[in-house]
């Protein structure tokens, strides 16, 4: 049974007094010990999905569908169950650690407070646990770091502290929303390595949200690609990199410049990415798709099973046979 299961999740948020749909029939599942990457560009709805999983939707938002954590419905939880879910069920690693950690408290306070207040540990034991956890994420002088303030640490260190906090909470699902987006590339590599290693060691589940397909593919078992508020493809990571099935995924891979060679022109996707509420009838990608056919504009494709995953495209079978979009050599 999956640890996390999202079923036909639709979310509307209120902007300027109007309801706008941001998620359409989002379907995903994360098994215990599995890492799922949720990839997409701005406006695709990835962060909103993460927030929905943690029951942290903005005020005025409404949702239909369901989110099941260990079989229990997250959207229907109340009171004690909800608090227990938030404390021990999932933990979040945010993009910007400086804004997620209270700047006037020390790192020690940040890490030990949940242990003392919620788990009822004694302060000394909590400090020891924190130091041990810091060592696991590669921070060896943990005792000194406990006394430091967030602004005294580098971005990479802070992200490790946040991962530490997730480990200490004992949660089984870590939701990481672009955790390395504000880090240098070498620091990113380290933080990702730590996250990957610890996840595997403790068999934790990971929902990894990113705009970087290759980064997600590096540590996730499966990847779901989002566009305009819906899942357009889901496949295991290797398969997705070798043979992306949805035209959007294919275009994304092709549009990314590669370090191995320059192209005369990158095959850019015309137009711009849309949010869910801007999509019309038919396929949301139709107006930008190089393989568009007349029925794509009128019929909204469903997420259909293919071998090794799902894809939301009316022409998926035909496209699979075509070669990937080529870059022009320089």
């Amino acid at each position: 049974m999956s640890l996390l299961e999202v079923r036909d999740l639709c979310v509307w948020v209120q902007t300027e007094g109007k309801d706008r749909q941001v998620l359409r029939d989002v379907v995903l599942s994360v098994a215990p010990g599995e890492a799922l990457g949720l990839v997409g560009e701005s406006g695709a709805g990835k962060s909103m999905t993460a927030r929905a999983v943690g029951r942290m939707l903005p005020t005025g938002a409404s949702a239909t569908g369901d989110i099941l954590f260990d079989g229990a419905s997250v959207l229907a939880m109340t009171g004690r169950d909800l608090r227990a879910f938030r404390r021990r069920g999932t933990s979040f690693v945010a993009q910007n650690p400086l804004s997620a950690i209270n700047p006037v408290h020390t790192i020690g306070d940040y890490l030990t407070e949940p242990l003392v207040v919620i788990a009822g540990m004694r302060h000394k034991a909590a400090s020891e646990a924190a130091v041990a956890a810091l060592a696991e994420v590669g921070i060896m002088d943990g005792l000194r770091v406990l006394g430091q303030y967030p602004h005294e640490l580098s971005g990479g260190m802070l992200q490790r502290v946040m991962i530490c906090s997730s480990l200490l909470s004992g949660s089984r699902l870590i939701v990481a929303d672009e955790p390395t987006a504000s880090l240098d590339v070498t620091t990113q590599s380290q933080v990702m390595a730590i996250l990957d290693e610890l996840r595997r060691e403790r068999s934790l589940s990971l929902l990894f949200i990113s705009h970087d397909l290759e980064l997600a593919a590096a540590i996730c078992d499966r990847i779901s690609v989002m566009y305009a508020g819906e899942i357009v493809e889901c496949q295991n990571a290797r398969g997705l990199q070798a043979e992306p099935r949805h035209p959007y995924t294919r275009a994304l891979f092709a549009a990314r410049p590669t370090i191995d060679g320059a192209s005369h022109r990158l095959p850019a996707i015309p137009g711009r990415a849309i949010a869910a509420h801007e999509a019309g009838a038919g396929c949301s990608f139709a107006n930008r798709c190089p393989y568009v056919a007349p029925q794509c504009n009128t019929e909204h494709p469903l997420l259909t099973e293919t071998d090794g995953g799902q894809v939301r495209c009316l022409r998926a079978a035909e496209i699979a046979a075509l070669p990937l979009p080529m870059r022009c050599p320089p």
Partner: peptide, 20 residues
């Protein structure tokens, strides 16, 4: 070697700049 790409895996390093 830190740039993600096909077949890339993240690596932990030995040293790390400790504070800002």
């Amino acid at each position: 070697s830190s740039v993600p790409g096909p077949g890339w895996r993240p690596k932990r390093l030995d040293h790390e700049p400790s504070s800002r």
